Simulated scan of single mutants.
Amino acid sequence: MGFSMRLEKLWGNPVTAPCTRLAVQMGKDKAATMLLLRFIRPTCMGRTREIFPSVQVLGFVRHSNLVPLWALYVGPRGEKLLVHPFFLHGSLYHFLKDGESKFYKWDTIHKLSVGIAKGIDHLHNALAGPIIHGNLKSKNILLDVDLVPHLSDYGLHLLLSSTAAQEMLDVSASEGYKASELIKTKDVCRETDIYSLGIIFLEMLTRKEPTATNLSSSWELHLPTSVRNLALQRKLPDIFSPELLSRGKNQRFSNNAEQQLLSYFQLAMSCCSPSPSLRPEIKQVLRILDEIS
């Protein structure tokens, strides 16, 4: 059986990062199976017997909006591979950055939002004990051919060493997804997941990245701050991506559609509240999304 590989960066430098993703195609015909292998350096993960209980918990998680963990391979030198299914349509990040405008419309954004929220709800509420995602961002949401979202990387912090887990959190902070109260990875909780979810909602609404890393003042260019300032200046149309406001020639943007976008914006901002106690629970997020539709 032949196979081909594609290496992509998960975070940090591909050589020194604690994890890298490796897409492997087993076979060369149309029936070939695509796997997503996550290589983790020996120094970045605990000993097998220490992490095995968490691997078992994560391995039993199954939901239509979550990327399942199929297997764990442990090599002779302590290297480890996490085996997942591969999704050919890429990540939500690349869909928002490079996707065709004809696919970027309100119905798609709403569908994606509901799917992401359902995945989080399953992790938080449907298992024997809650699993906190801990690294929720658009790069870790994979899309299938029908644009159904599948959350990856959930619970990965449970398997990493404290140093590697903190590096993962630092990257999340630099990319704008980390709640301000979150200092150590061990402190991740439902509320910090909800904050990251709100950032993703704003990302989908604006098609802008959470931070503008090429400029010096990241606070002023942090997405929640930017859209809040526009709202205070009564410039709400400037918040939404132009594609969401476009309805073609001679078609007006209806009051109902405008209200849907406004309600979605308000939901996203409530998820991004600086106060954890003011952020909605995931079931409330789902209820509001249902009302918006």
Rank of each mutant, 00 (worst) to 15 (best):
R228K: 13
L58T: 07
P130S: 10
L37T: 02
K139Y: 03
I239T: 02
L236C: 03
L35Y: 12
S254A: 02
C19W: 07
Q251W: 08
P14C: 06
D290K: 09
D187V: 01
S152E: 13
S64V: 09
L22V: 15
E220K: 01
S270E: 14
E181D: 09
D153I: 03
A179D: 06
E79I: 07
F265Y: 11
E100I: 03
S54C: 09
G75A: 12
E281C: 05
S246H: 13
L35K: 05
L127M: 06
Y154F: 15
I183S: 05
S172C: 13
G176H: 02
G90W: 02
K105I: 11
I199A: 00
N256I: 12
H150T: 05
N256Q: 14
L7T: 11
L72T: 13
L182A: 00
G12H: 05
G155Y: 08
K283T: 10
L262S: 12
V15L: 13
V148L: 03
V114C: 04
L221T: 07
L7N: 11
K80T: 14
L158C: 13
L123W: 08
Y264L: 06
L197I: 00
T185G: 06
R279G: 01
V57N: 12
D187S: 05
S174R: 12
E8D: 12
T211F: 02
I51M: 04
F87G: 00
R234M: 11
F86D: 07
D238Q: 15
G12E: 09
G59M: 12
A126T: 02
S162R: 12
L92C: 03
L123A: 04
D170A: 14
Y154H: 10
C271D: 00
R77P: 00
K184F: 14
S217N: 15
S180T: 06
G248S: 04
L10T: 14
Y264N: 00
G119H: 06
E8I: 10
K235D: 15
R49G: 05
F201M: 03
K283W: 03
C271G: 00
P85Y: 07
N214K: 11
K28V: 11
E50P: 04
P85Q: 08
S101L: 10
E191S: 06
A126N: 09
R252F: 15
L81T: 03
H122P: 03
L158P: 08
K283P: 01
M26E: 15
T43Q: 15
L35I: 09
E50W: 08
A71P: 07
L7W: 12
S64F: 09
I109Y: 00
E243T: 07
K28I: 09
Y177S: 02
L88N: 14
K111D: 13
W11K: 06
A165G: 09
G78H: 08
K139S: 15
I40L: 11
L236D: 07
P242H: 08
T33W: 07
